[in-house]
Design a binder for these strands. Structure first.
Lengths: 112, 112
DNA sequence: GCAATTGTTTTCCATGTGGCTAACCATACC
DNA sequence: GGTATGGTTAGCCACATGGAAAACAATTGC
């Protein structure tokens, strides 16, 4: 878990932006070209491309240029890798409650 | 989903930092004071307090000051709210595959 | 009351981020 | 070949962020 630390940094940072989350969501429905993805946003292309760059750097999406058209694809693996982090945290949190439970049981045992 | 957009922004941004994720992880094991949390990090307190501030602004943690000691507590609800976003994305992604499957079935149906 | 502990406020700095325009390739198309 | 289309590069700007130092509360404990 120490190793994918930097990876989590970039993934979470990539997701901390409504534009980029919208792109992820759109790509969930299928691959698309840059200009298709950019259309819904009132934004200059170079600005939009930066978002694509951030998403690609994080590994959440991949892109390939054919001719003059760049097509983007979602990488669901990276997405579920980030999701896994939440699972780990919840496990920690839940085990804490187990421990608390044990402690309470123990205390009530000592009380008698 | 449109509404918690800003909330997701702040939560993901809060998680896009190893220090803050470590704090979350630590708090998963139980509440702790600011200086207890800060101890593992080679960082000046004011800097560390900024991280606490970011986490608290995102709603991931809460804190209460008693005397001169501030105690921080994890808010697992916010954590699982963020986790839910991944679930939604996966649902989208998976339904795409279903559709693809249907399409393929349909095509093979038309083939005969 | 004095000193140590625990945060907080203030100020500063370097860097990163998100946005823009303008100019520039490169490919498709007529 | 010339022109539209789809990206890209290069600069620029305002502002947020992560870090530090220093001075300042405010509480606890002797």
């Amino acid at each position: 878990m120490e190793n994918n630390c930097a990876a989590l940094d970039s993934v979470f940072h990539a997701l901390a932006d409504p534009t980029r989350r919208a792109v992820i969501q759109q790509l969930g429905k299928g691959s698309a070209t840059v200009s298709e993805l950019a259309k819904p946003f009132n934004m200059a292309l170079p600005s939009f491309m930066k978002h694509i760059g951030v998403l690609e750097a994080s590994g959440l999406i991949a892109s390939r240029k054919i001719g003059r058209v760049r097509t983007c694809t979602l990488n669901p693996g990276k997405l579920s890798a980030a999701e896994r982090w939440f699972g780990e945290q919840r496990a920690l949190w839940e085990s804490r409650y187990e421990n608390l439970d044990n402690l309470l049981t123990e205390l009530s045992g000592n009380e008698r």
